[in-house]
Every structure is written in structure tokens, then in C-alpha cells.
Amino acid sequence: MTEPIIRVTNLSTKYGDRFVLRGVNMSVNSGEIMIILGGSGCGKSTLLKHIIRLLHPYSGQIHLFGQDITRMEEHEFEPIQRQMGVLFQNGALINSLTISENVALPLQMHTRLPDDLIWEIVRVKLHLVELDHAYHLFPPELSGGMRKRAALARAIALDPQILFCDEPSAGLDPVTCLEIDQLFLKLNRQLGMTLVVVTHELESIKRIAQKITYLDQGKALFSGAFEDALKSGIPQIDQFFLKSAP
């Protein structure tokens, strides 16, 4: 059996004296779509920030591409970073650069592609998120949803092997939400991209989830196939899907 592309083992972390994650285990195979879900403040975003190494754990291990990133030096982590894209909750675009320059940034900094090819790739990526018209605009000139779509274009600029998304649907209208989910599925099917998505949007979960990790008060109550989660009989998960259902 091949090594999972992401493996989180017994991960615990705390802010001050308060444990935010307690012994979380999770694994994602290459080409899967994993949804991390749970109520507000359950540690979803914290878990994501540990996997992308913006936070360091109190204990436990995180393996990306088979390597333990908790014991790595910054320069050892850089090649791994180049194989992952991150979509932040608020977009996190660089406000002093235009939308196209934001998308071009990772291509300019990490590849030696000729300029005309870079700008073609930028155009294609902006077209995918339907922001062709925003090419020369600056982030503050866009709406929240458009900024998020532009940030998604930047996150997939390098065709990363893993795409991490923190609440991609938050603040978006249902139609845009649907379009972004369809884009996720396309990226997953056509490029074999692995996706880790933090969300609690039920419709979105139903559309794209292959595996889920359900967090409750910092503990992973379930981590595995979506169909198995629905049959697991875990009260919190049943309640989440029943209460969220229209």
C-alpha cells in the first residue's frame, strides 16, 4: 500500500494553557478530497495551519509526501511548499499588486518560464475563476467573493499536488459556491490534485467530499470515507448532517 500524501499522527497543540487539538489522527491519499468539518472553534483552521506549517504542534507528527515536517528546517520545507497551494479564508492577496500580478507571483518567483507564457497561464487561471475582467484591478477594488476567487487562481497557479482551502465557500453566493466546487472536482479529476478543504457548508460537502475528518472540541471524532461517516452512528455527526439539512 502506498504512503498517504498527508498523515497526521496524534497531533496535539495548545494556545497558552488551553489544548486546541488533542491527539488528532488523519490521513489523505494522493488524489483524494478530504473535508475537515465541525462546529465553530473546534480547531479546524488550527489543524489546517499545522499541516501547512504556519503553526508548530505541541506534540505529534505531520507527514507530507512521506516526510515529517515537524522536524524539518525551513529550507528543507521549501521544496514541499512549492508543491502545495493554500487558499486563505480572507483571500490574503497582496494588496499592492494587481490581481494578475498576484497570480503571476509564484510563477515568477519559483519557475523560469518566459514572461509571455507566465501571463498566458495567469490569463487561463483567471478565466477558470471567471475573473478575466479583473486582470488589472487591485484587490481592494474587488468584492469579497471575487477576492476569494482571485486567491484561488493564485493558489492553483503552480498546479500544486495538494490544495488546502480554508472556508472557500464562506461569504459566497450559492451559484459561485457551486462553480468553485465544480472547479475543485475538475482539478481533482483532471490533474489528480489532492484537496483538503475546511468547511461546514453542507451542500458543498455533499458535492465534493470523498473523505471527512469531523472535529469536536479539538478531538477527531471520525476520519475516513464520507459514506462511512454517515453510517457511523456518531451522535455529533448525525446531528450535524440532520440539523444542517434543509
Binding site: 504556519l54 521549501e78 511548499q81 480572507n90 490574503a92 497582496i94 494588496n95
Partner: peptide, 15 residues
Amino acid sequence: TMKFTEELDALKTMA
């Protein structure tokens, strides 16, 4: 402001 809007984190994730 860059820290507030997660721009610094975004730079780090882009190595």
C-alpha cells in the same frame, strides 16, 4: 496590515 490580512502568511506558504 499585511499581518492582519494574512499576506505575510501567504508569502511564507509560497516559500
